[in-house]
Design a binder for these strands. Structure first.
Lengths: 186, 186
DNA sequence: GTCTATACCTTGATAGAC
DNA sequence: GTCTATCAAGGTATAGAC
């Protein structure tokens, strides 16, 4: 995979997470790379293709993380912590997450991107539900209701707190994050 | 205030809540109204102005709701319920909320819109914190931690659950909503 | 006071040069 | 295989007609 291609993906992802899908253009990327906007079309024939590739890439990175945690034999608390750390990092970098950026724009996305985003979101929720369920059974977590709803609540909190700290103050994220963890202690 | 002006605001708000700020144009509105796009500029000289007006309008509707609940002497449980009902309605109409739509686009918004959105969000959080605090003191609610963080969690859940049900399924909203209320019962 | 004709710029994308 | 010249469509906004 060429270096140019990788840099395009990096930049495009950064633009999506800081300014949104409909606010960035091929020219934003090409001018940064010192090439013409049309050069991007060689690597990614359409914006739809570029967007979908970025979602796919994100999904893969999530799967890798899950695999790594399995190999390292992390318990459920540690797995959740690692997952939440992704969002803490995004917060420091003033980025929101892929779901939180593309979710609001969902109706304007090409079909392939919609499908990819749906799949990734479901995978994350499936994984999160499962560690919550297992963690509760082994006494690590304490919460009411079924684990799918709890996973939805936690994911919601992560998605929107990144968005809120953009409108409010970066430091508010920590309070949300901590309260959420305290709740799970029962 | 002219009828055309009101219809423009209605349509613009709907477009923002279904497609996002950077995905709608003056032409989307004008073609729906059967006039030329430039006619909108008579009522709203710039898109920045239109966007800011819509946020302002939303903030005013929130203040009116708060005032009404005061007059009706709603207790804290009823006030919270009314507030959450706004989001349930949005969910039925396949809309997200103003904060959830404009938050992700924050960095691309004109300064006046940013300021207005900040102010509105802070007002909502201030109000929500206060009814949570009062409600806990009078034994209606039960939760851990300080009320500001709890308000942030609840607002996060509402914002992101609307976005998530766009990616996932409309019915998932109800689970989130109910779990959140059950949690507050202690 | 209300709206149209029109300008000017940026967008995503194609065809073809090197 | 990699990139440039160029295009048609659509964006916001201004000047001025009714």
């Amino acid at each position: 995979m060429s270096v140019t291609r990788e840099r395009i993906m990096e930049l495009a992802e950064e633009l999506i997470l800081t300014r949104g899908y409909n606010a960035f253009s091929y020219q934003d990327i090409s001018s940064e790379l010192g090439i013409k906007n049309a050069a991007i079309h060689y690597y990614f024939p359409s914006k739809a293709n570029l967007g979908t590739s970025i979602i796919k890439n994100n999904g893969q990175r999530f799967e890798e993380m899950v695999q790594n945690m399995k190999i390292m034999k992390f318990d459920e608390a540690k797995q959740l912590e690692s997952f939440l750390r992704i969002y803490a990092k995004s917060n420091r970098e003033q980025k929101i997450c892929v779901i939180g950026s593309l979710g609001p724009d969902f109706n304007t996305l090409p079909e392939a991107s919609q499908a990819e985003l749906k799949q990734m979101t479901n995978r994350i929720l499936q994984w999160l539900s499962s560690i919550l369920e297992t963690g509760r059974n082994s006494g690590i977590f304490s919460f009411k209701g079924d684990s799918r709803n709890r996973a939805l609540l936690i994911l919601s909190n992560m998605i929107a707190s990144l968005q809120l700290t953009r409108v409010l103050d970066k430091t508010e994220f920590k309070g949300i994050h901590q309260t959420l963890l305290d709740d799970l202690k029962g």
